[in-house]
Simulated assay, not measured.
Amino acid sequence: MFDLILRNGRVLDPGQGIDRIADIGFRDGKVAAVEPGLPVEAAKDVQDATGLIVTPGLIDLHTHVYWGGTSLGVDADAIALRGGTTTFVDAGSAGAGNFAGFRRHVIERSQSRILCYLNISFAGIYGFSKNVMVGECSDIRLCDAREAVACGREHSDLIVGMKVRIGRIAGGTSGVAPLDIMLEAADRLQLPCMTHLDYPPPGRIEVIPRLRPGDVLTHCYKPFPNDIRGGDGHVRAEIKAARERGIIFDIGHGMGALDYEVARAMIAEGFLPDTISSDVHTLCVDGPAFDLLRTLSKFICLGMSLEQVVTAATSAPARAIGRSDLGSLAVGAIGDATVLRDRSGSFDYVDSLGRSMTGNRRLFCQGLVRGGIWTANEEQELA
């Protein structure tokens, strides 16, 4: 007996090497079978996925979903179906000083799964709006490894890594010090970290050598002056060396971190992002990022294949946060799936600099399976 069968879809799970027409059966919140011709009479619920693409539940590795508790937080449940997202990884909205509120008032009440990078700043991201922009690491007194470690241990079921935002905006005159403090906490917790770098100082030369294998550098296709290209337009040598030693390069589209010129050059050179994330927050949820599916669609139109973008939003982010039970349709994995329609047409896409691109494809979410339970997207946006 199955709780749910998704029938006759194109099952696309690059992490498992699967791309075929098959049924997926879910039982007790997990994937129970992936094969053609599952007996539909043995299921409580059957959904026809003919002509649709069924992927593991999409994971958005960089989001801000502490809605109501931080000024940049959006409601994960409100955009989950639109973005085809079953797991939101919040990238440091909360620090040790307000993480308990994030847990009780948002995470525990959310239908969407929310996992977290903990901000090294005790206050989290507290001053972020169109009119107020105060970097949480601009006062180094807020960065305390002891508080972060204590919080990380108390909430180890939700915290998958540490986060720091550094640069002229997020860190003011603190330089690279918040990164070093975060790395101390991450090492003690034995967790990876994610680093945001806005405008120097510090610059790449100071930051990248400090990162460890498995750490994430987000906003990797952002514009100059932290463009990962050299003046000759090619990938910088230190960036290539960082990838070779295991640094993970994440998109983190957001308000200001996707430059089409950079993206086209990097893709043409074969330097693809490891993970593709939306960095969705209040200043970009209505554009230019919108959500994970809009971001993935941009990368298809920029030249990546469907298989590549699905990998970058399933098995790759699952690996980055050490959650092999997510981002997979292997039997026994958590029963999450995203059902997609790949539409052809004419679609306008804008990058973080306001440049427009007309693409001929866009992914739309038909519905989500979360813990083996089907939710249809009845308000699918077709424009």
Rank of each mutant, 00 (worst) to 15 (best):
I125M: 08
I125D: 00
I125P: 01
Y126K: 05
Y126H: 09
S129G: 11
S129P: 05
V132Q: 02
V132C: 03
G135S: 01
S138T: 07
I140G: 01
R141T: 15
R141Y: 11
L142P: 03
R146I: 14
E147S: 14
E147T: 13
G152W: 07
R153L: 14
R153S: 08
E154D: 11
E154W: 00
S156W: 09
S156N: 12
L158I: 14
I159T: 08
I159Q: 06
M162P: 11
R165H: 06
I166D: 02
A170P: 04
G171I: 03
T173D: 08
T173R: 04
T173Y: 02
G175C: 11
G175R: 09
A177W: 00
P178I: 15
D180R: 15
D180L: 15
D180Y: 14
M182Q: 14
E184Y: 15
A185M: 14
D187K: 15
P192F: 14
P192E: 12
M194A: 06
M194I: 14
M194R: 10
T195R: 11
T195V: 15
D198P: 07
Y199H: 04
P201W: 05
P202Q: 06
P202M: 05
P202H: 08
G203V: 04
G203L: 06
E206A: 13
I208W: 12
R210L: 15
L211S: 11
R212P: 01
R212F: 12
R212C: 13
L217Y: 13
T218R: 09
C220Q: 03
Y221P: 06
Y221D: 06
Y221K: 04
K222T: 11
P223W: 00
F224C: 02
F224P: 00
F224V: 05
F224A: 06
R229V: 10
R229C: 13
G230N: 05
D232G: 01
D232M: 05
H234S: 12
V235S: 05
A237V: 09
A237L: 12
E238Y: 09
K240W: 10
A242H: 02
I247V: 15
I248F: 11
F249D: 08
D250Y: 08
G254D: 07
M255S: 05
G256M: 07
G256L: 03
A257K: 01
A257W: 05
A257Q: 02
L258E: 07
Y260A: 04
E261W: 00
E261G: 04
A263Q: 04
A263P: 08
R264C: 09
